[in-house]
């Protein structure tokens, strides 16, 4: 083995754009993978010195501890407005938000829709795990029908609680969105596809073509009360049918939905 683990044989290492801080996420949580993919793309594009992230409220509230780029923290749901302010003043920088489902699709719905509608030249990374993870597993706007959470302990009742909704398909209808896609990071194949989507999104930002929006359907094994691998299987079986994988809008044209 010693003869293999030599520098010249290196084929994969954690990008140095991830800091040395230990990720605050639960074991098996997709957040870490998504952070890393974004930083890998930033590294490959050589844009660290031009990249500014906006961190949400929620599990990724400390995203700036892990990604080695300049960051602004935003109030819950306000990241697209904060990113708008940054981008309007630094139009040549790369600005992205990183938001969860409660942040983006509940409390920040107005900011999300209007930033998308204006076609701000930013990139929105939307992590949908169907639950409020940070606050302890409460029902999110994306919680599936019948799914149990700490505020839908008998399962989400669409009649009384309203049904889950697909904000990604919704914002794809807006003329300001240029690239809208849904990805996952639970297996090697999806990870590689997701990385290509991130690259595409940031290239679009470089060309100032409008907003690029990537939803990552992800797991919350703690909130769902499963092992990491069981949660990934459950996600495929239950989340993916309602939140189907793939591109929704490419080059400003709807391709699905």
């Amino acid at each position: 083995m010693k003869e293999i683990t030599r520098e010249e044989n290196l084929v994969y290492r954690r990008t140095p754009l991830m800091t040395d801080a230990t990720l605050s996420y639960c074991p098996g949580c997709g957040h870490g993978t998504i952070h890393r993919l974004i930083m890998e793309v930033v590294e490959e594009m050589g844009i660290q010195s031009e990249t500014i992230g906006v961190a949400p409220v929620g599990c990724a509230v400390l995203a700036y501890d892990f990604m080695d780029v300049d960051f602004s923290q935003a109030a819950h749901g306000r990241a697209p407005a904060v990113a708008t302010g940054i981008k309007r003043l630094w139009p040549d920088k790369f600005v992205f938000t990183y938001q969860g489902d409660g942040d983006l699709a509940a409390i920040g719905t107005a900011e999300t829709i209007h930033a998308c509608n204006r076609g701000e030249n930013i990139t929105i990374f939307f992590v949908n795990n169907g639950i409020y993870g940070m606050t302890g597993g409460q029902m999110a706007p994306t919680t599936l029908e019948g799914m149990k959470s700490s505020t839908s302990p008998y399962g989400r009742n669409n009649e009384t609680m309203g049904p889950p909704y697909k904000i990604t398909e919704l914002i794809a209808q807006l003329s300001g969105t240029y690239y809208v896609t849904r990805q996952a990071v639970h297996k090697p194949g999806p990870v590689r596809k997701a990385k290509k989507a991130i690259r595409k999104a940031l290239e679009i930002q470089k060309e100032k073509k409008g907003i690029s929006f990537i939803e990552f359907v992800s797991n919350c094994n703690s909130g769902w009360k499963m092992t990491p691998n069981d949660s990934n299987i459950w996600m495929e079986e239950h989340m993916f049918p309602f939140y189907p994988m793939g591109d929704i809008k490419v080059d400003g044209k709807l391709v699905k939905g």
């Binding site: 990113a83 302010g85 940054i86 209007h114």
Partner: peptide, 10 residues
């Protein structure tokens, strides 16, 4: 709400 957060970002 959005306006003040744009100010915050800017």
């Amino acid at each position: 709400v959005a306006a003040i957060n744009m100010v915050y970002g800017a």
